[in-house]
Amino acid sequence: MTSAWNNYFAPDTVADALDILQRYDGQARVIGGGTDLLVETRRGLRRPIEAIVDATRIGGLGAITEEDEYIVIGCGVSHTTIVNDPRIIRYGTCLSESCGVIGGPQVRNTGTLAGNVAHALPAGDGTIGLLALGGEVEITSSNGVCWIPAKDTFAGPGRSHIDRHREILTRIRFRRTTDNEGSAHCRVMRPQGLCLPIISMATRLELHGDMITSAGISMGPVGPVPWFAEPAAAVLVGQPASAQQFGKAVEAALENITLRTSKYRATEEYRETMIRTHLPIILETAVRRAGGSQ
């Protein structure tokens, strides 16, 4: 097979990784599992890469940890590890669910959530789950380290604001949900053709009594980037959890997006119907899960 890359590095520190990026001056790419990038390159959709920098062996970034109120996921952590982690199942349910539908088992065994977020597809399932939880990403460069909301990293379909020549997405975190919170994810696919979602949606709700006190909703593909649906979540906050209110959230979501028919994937009408049908379903599931039960 024609080579998709020439040199392979698996640095064990972030500093080394940044150093390689700098040395290759735009000709190096960071990979987690590499499945997205390498499949596209093997298919001739991308130019071959001079150097790949495998981020999964960097010390300290291969595990899930807890820091204060956050659950922190290193960039080397695979989807499978996320799916099965009891802390994420309990305190970040929609992320466990969303990572669990990516591809198939083999791809989840090597693919990483960091890679999913950095790839910036309009409906990366793991990303959708993370957004609903208000996830943040840690960007490391030679200038230092900073945390930014994951929702602010998307520039366009498949384009991230993360400067891949100079920056590395090193960690991901989200606030652990409390006993008053529940989260849920769902996805509608078709069994034919490309394995891309027709719609992927996630939500996190916090309830006190039957009042929704905070909410996060995310969905894609509904535009060029994964959408953190603030207008829809805003409709719910301070309101009782009810089918009627969920309906208003649906309307708010639909008002703020332009759905399109995509060839061989879904008509605009079907996408709208799927949002109308399934958003209330995950909202209800999140309500049920709020209150500590799973």
Partner: peptide
């Protein structure tokens, strides 16, 4: 397929199934 689609190239790396057709050899170091 060489596209990580069919899975017939699956092998175990440290006990974990992976598709070897898109798995860089040096990842197995």
């Amino acid at each position: 397929c060489a596209e990580a689609e069919c899975g017939i190239c699956t092998v175990l790396v440290d006990g974990t199934p992976i598709v070897s057709c898109v798995y860089p050899a040096f990842k197995a170091q």
